[in-house]
Design a protein around this nucleic acid. Structure first.
Length: 437
RNA sequence: GGCCGAGUGGCAGAAUGGUUUAUGCAGAGGACUGCAAAUCCUUGUAUGUCGGUUCGAUUCCGGUCUCGGCCUCCA
């Protein structure tokens, strides 16, 4: 492997050279959505970043297994379903459908596995039993709690974090220790039978059971939003250790948030908005480019100005490249590979692509065009398909005839018609070019 | 209160112990165009603050200020 990949591992707090467990089987797990509501732009930043990581790992290694789960049982799902007076399954299916549609629009590759929690209930129950047997969990009033004092390394993620004085914590009487957390809890309805009664799993055990079953411990990379560091990933480590006496993952990657008006976008803050609204104004590829325009560890500020920036850049790329529809051949630019190798530096990769595109000589060279297109593919950026092109090209040809006849009225009419469909024309010495606004 | 992260031009956002600090957008002037658009050429503006290390720091270290995040809902 010529290119060494460096990743900021949050557990060690250091940027480390990536050494996979096995070169022939790279394993990566990303915490996916809880489907009580369609994920918002901030959620999709995470999925887009890890999709890009998946794409890059796939470029570097022959076989990459990418797992992104779907949490389809949870208190919020129950609450939301009750509020709408519908079956939770109906709710989750509908949200999953929208989620999949947005994933497709944003050109997120399907993960190798996309497990649902409800399909892993046997594994979850078995894992909780194992934790009890191994002495890491205790049963109390039909609950099963994880005993955090049994795991010496519990605080590695959050070192000296004071968990007591934060005010938001109410220590339940069920807990033997303040950090203990729920593995299983009783449920009135929407539950499963278990040795501890009818109930459902706590939030953290599901990812442990699914990742262990599908990937095995330790797998290579565990990723998610930075709000998951504590408690979710902290507790996953504890559970993994309790089950297997091993780390569950070798690298922990966390992305920063999308901010709007100086605050993170969040479902609970109520400042999130549906991607559908965004897609009315912007091409999904513009949204993807925006989401990759900042380093994943840094906050990304959402504004119409920032979106406009991304749109302008995308249009520029499109204008220069979309006529070269070459797919699946060529290697990406070395400069782009270098940028991504350094902790997935997507803003720098975007810069490198722009530099290459700005260099007219490159555009005249077929091989370099392929390099640019392969680089765009690494970032998951694509242009349009030929079907639409044909209709547009027909109109453009009609307008060219009008222009040759100096019938500028008709020529401008056609241009306006296309413009109303957000197609912008350019008359160049090499012919007419168009791009989509 | 504890812990973590971030402060770069009008905006977004990279990089770097050193003669000239990207890239894109926006601005100004010019070329080109049936009109445009795009493109090309020219062009101005920045490293929160105070110290320290150094021949030299925006970059390393320390203080400080500001902002954001986590502290059992969260990507």
């Amino acid at each position: 492997m010529n290119n060494k990949l460096f990743l900021s591992d949050n557990l060690s707090g250091q940027k480390r050279c990536f050494e996979p467990c096995r070169y022939d089987r790279i394993t990566i797990y990303a915490c996916g959505p809880t489907v009580y509501k369609v994920p918002h732009l901030g959620n999709f930043r995470s999925f887009t970043i890890f999709d890009t990581l998946y794409r890059f790992l796939t470029y570097l290694y022959p076989n990459v297994i990418y797992v992104r789960n779907i949490t389809d049982i949870d208190d919020k799902i129950i609450d939301q379903a009750r509020a709408q007076n519908i079956d939770p399954k109906l709710l989750t299916n509908s949200v999953i459908e929208s989620f999949s549609m947005y994933c497709e629009k944003l050109n997120l590759l399907p993960p190798t596995f996309e497990p649902k929690v409800t399909d892993f209930m046997n594994e979850i129950i078995a894992d909780i039993q194992t934790l009890i047997i191994n002495g890491f969990a205790y049963e109390k009033s039909h609950h099963v709690m994880f005993d955090t004092t049994k795991y010496d390394d519990y605080r590695k993620f959050c070192k000296d974090m004071n968990t007591c004085t934060g005010a938001r914590v109410e220590v339940s009487v069920l807990k033997n220790n303040e950090n203990d957390f729920v593995l299983w809890k009783p449920a009135d309805d929407f539950g499963w039978d278990s040795p501890w009664g009818y109930g459902r799993p706590g939030w953290h055990i599901e990812c442990t059971s699914m990742s262990r079953k599908i990937l095995g411990f330790p797998f290579d990379i565990h990723c998610g939003g930075q709000d998951l560091i504590f408690p979710h990933h902290t507790n996953e480590r504890a559970q993994g250790w309790g089950l297997c006496k091993t780390e569950c993952a070798n690298y922990w990657i966390h992305n920063n948030f999308v901010n709007i008006d100086g605050e993170k976008i969040s479902k609970s803050l109520g400042n999130s908005f549906d991607l559908e609204e965004l897609f009315l104004d912007y091409n999904p590829m513009v949204v993807r480019l925006f989401l990759l325009s900042a380093n994943y560890k840094h906050p990304l500020h959402f504004s119409s100005y920032a979106m406009k920036n991304a749109e302008n850049l995308y249009n520029k790329w499109h204008r220069k490249c979309h006529h070269y529809n070459i797919i699946g051949c060529g290697r990406p630019l070395q400069s782009v590979v270098d940028a991504l190798s350094d902790d997935l530096n997507t803003p720098l990769a975007i810069t490198r692509i722009t530099e290459a595109i700005n260099d007219q000589d490159n555009i005249n060279s077929q091989i370099d065009v392929e390099e640019i297109l392969a680089s765009l593919d690494l970032l998951g950026i694509k242009f349009y398909d030929h079907e639409i092109d044909k209709e547009i090209n027909d109109l453009i040809n009609k307008r060219e005839i009008a222009r040759q006849n100096k019938d500028y009225v008709q020529a401008d009419e056609i241009r306006d018609v296309l413009l109303s469909r957000n197609i912008v024309l350019e008359d160049t010495k090499l012919g007419v070019k168009w791009y989509k606004k």
